[in-house]
């Protein structure tokens, strides 16, 4: 039990009000989960979810399609929210986001490589489950290493560089995806489109179980660094003088972001603005300290993503809107509002 107490000791830097807000976020997360599971092209009552009836088709839809899909949406939202919050903290820049700095694009390029070339060069038994996430993670990691290299270890003066390099990497990745689109067959093309617009439609237990486990481990690995991210806000030398191993912290934040974002993108495609907007919403709700911000961004990100997925299924039912369209349609105006609001966020 001691390690559990130790693990959660970062919470002592949150106020009781912040812990209350976090609980409210968890409750709304459960509520939206139940709502998302209940509604769709098949409707279930919550009672049916808790005590599944014997009707086999309904049970199959619920257990094999609906629940994995909603879970995936939740985890992708959580990893985007968490990595957005931790990258903003690491870069000390309120505009950092896995998408803006090209990490998602790197992951998508990695995924696209496997979709288009994978069936030719990789044995089928690996291709099914492992090659895609691994290639996407490698793409994300490559982008982050490039950023690290070009910004000289993410120095303070490197922030403008970082965004410019992000733009360049985004452009480079879209060229790569363009070439892959050009040489792809019709079925591969359909797979590619699935990534660039974002959807949770393909979720099945076989694919998401290992992914969710890795995402969860990586999040649990990252979250206790929240206090160190607070101290980093004083500047790198100051954090170091307060006893923080800054290099180690950077490594942790970047590796865990690459893993969670890489896996999320590989399973759901490019979903914009969640990683940028969610941390700002959380800061408005309860404060800027990372011991509150990191877990709360994960909870809120999960809720918002499940909500967006629910909307994507309901708006033009029985057809589906790509969820990336919905998050961008909501996120883009919010982003504009952030810019115009004030320079201090």
């Amino acid at each position: 039990m001691a390690w559990l107490f130790n693990y959660f000791s970062f919470l002592k830097h949150s106020t009781s009000q912040q812990i209350l807000i976090s609980f409210a976020l968890i409750i709304s997360l459960v509520f939206i989960f139940l709502l998302s599971v209940s509604f769709g092209s098949f409707n279930f009552s919550i009672i049916e979810f808790l005590f599944p009836s014997e009707s086999s088709i309904q049970k199959t839809v619920l257990l094999e399609i609906r629940i994995p899909r909603v879970l995936l949406a939740g985890f992708v939202g959580a990893s985007l929210g968490l990595s957005g919050a931790s990258l903003q903290g690491l870069f000390r820049n309120p505009l950092a986001d896995p998408g803006l700095i090209g990490v998602s694009a790197g992951a998508a390029l990695g995924a696209a490589l496997v979709i288009v070339l994978g069936s030719t060069y990789i044995p089928a038994y690996i291709f099914n489950t492992l090659a895609l996430p691994i290639s996407a993670v490698a793409g994300a990691a490559l982008v982050i290493s490039l950023l690290y290299f070009f910004t000289r270890g993410f120095g303070y003066q490197g922030i403008t560089y970082m965004l410019l390099i992000g733009i360049a990497v985004n452009a480079f990745a879209s060229v790569g995806i363009g070439i892959l689109t050009f040489i792809s067959t019709d079925s591969e093309l359909r797979g590619l489109t699935f990534w660039t617009m974002g959807s949770f439609g393909g979720a099945s237990w076989q694919i998401i179980l290992p992914a969710l486990m890795i995402i969860m481990l990586s999040m649990f690995w990252m979250i206790p660094s929240s206090r160190k991210l607070d101290l980093l806000q004083l500047g790198e030398p100051e954090a170091y003088r307060l006893g923080i191993d800054v290099q180690k912290l950077k490594f942790k934040v970047i590796v865990s972001s690459a893993i969670t974002v890489g896996i999320s993108v590989s399973l759901s495609g490019m979903i914009g603005f969640v990683g940028l907007v969610v941390p700002h919403l959380v800061r408005l709700l309860g404060g800027v300290n990372h011991s509150f911000l990191l877990p709360a961004s994960a909870f809120l990100g999960a809720s918002l993503m499940m909500g967006a997925d629910l909307l994507s299924r309901l708006l033009i039912a029985p057809a589906e809107l790509p969820v990336g369209l919905i998050t961008s349609a909501i996120g883009a105006p919010f982003f504009l509002w952030l810019i115009f609001r004030s320079r201090r966020i």
Partner: peptide
């Protein structure tokens, strides 16, 4: 690095703080 932080405290030229921390938090 950690031991050093217990035996000496440094105040140098400080950098801007981006997010809205309260004085108490700082």
């Amino acid at each position: 690095i950690q031991e050093r932080s217990f035996m000496r405290s440094v105040m140098a030229q400080s950098q801007a703080i981006v997010f809205d921390f309260s004085v108490k938090e700082i």
